[in-house]
């Protein structure tokens, strides 16, 4: 009984926050609702017994991604946007596509009606760690490479450009004042 109450209240919070994300006119309010929605999804993970995933959801999504979106909204927003329309002219077609997708998905969901869990939920952090370091070791290393490349790409694209930076300036000829006794300069 308490499980049903937890699930349905969290689901209501998540869905209402998600609807606010896509319908609000002020992008700043949308970003704040996104944080609330991601927090609700973390609670849903907790009701499913996925403790590690819930913790990483809070750490990565709520603490990282929602905050990053908030920063970019503050950097790239203007006052006039508060009165502009935020949806394009194709909202009716979008609503139709979304409704058709939901209808098709609910056809498949109906096949799983009445399926309940057979075992109790147990802590899974140790199992996930063993999976990540044994069976999924190669994808684990690859995903760290993906993160590194994403970091480099973000730095590359958000770099200020070279018109006002000192990147265009020619490098100083030689080292003007080498430190006394710098062994790297004198090494053969």
């Amino acid at each position: 009984m308490i499980e049903q109450i937890a699930f349905y209240s969290l689901a209501a919070v998540t869905l209402v926050a998600a609807l606010l994300v896509v319908t609000l006119r002020n992008v700043l309010h949308s970003a704040l609702s996104l944080g609330l929605c991601l927090f609700g999804v973390a609670g849903i993970f907790a009701t499913l017994g996925a403790d590690f995933v819930a913790a990483s959801q809070v750490l990565v999504y709520v603490g990282g991604i929602a905050l990053l979106v908030l920063f970019v909204v503050l950097l790239a927003a203007r006052h006039s946007e508060l009165v502009l329309r935020q949806t394009n002219q194709q909202w009716a077609a979008g609503l139709f596509i979304a409704g058709a997708t939901l209808w098709g998905m609910s056809r498949y969901i109906a096949a799983y009606r009445g399926l309940s869990a057979t075992t109790e939920a147990h802590p899974t952090t140790r199992d996930i760690a063993q999976l990540l370091l044994k069976d999924l070791a190669v994808p684990f290393e690859l995903i760290s490479l993906v993160l590194l490349v994403a970091l480099a790409g973000a730095i590359l694209y958000s770099h200020q450009g070279k018109e006002e930076g000192p990147a265009d300036a020619p490098p100083p000829a030689g080292n003007p004042d080498p430190g006394p006794g710098d062994p790297a300069e004198e090494a053969p």
Binding site: L15, A18, I97
Partner: peptide
């Protein structure tokens, strides 16, 4: 719930004008 969340996101991705949205 996950289907509803996905569909809401799909609707937003199709109709928002703001790239951050």
């Amino acid at each position: 719930l996950s289907a509803c969340l996905f569909v809401i996101g799909l609707f937003g991705a199709l109709t928002r004008r703001n790239v951050i949205g």
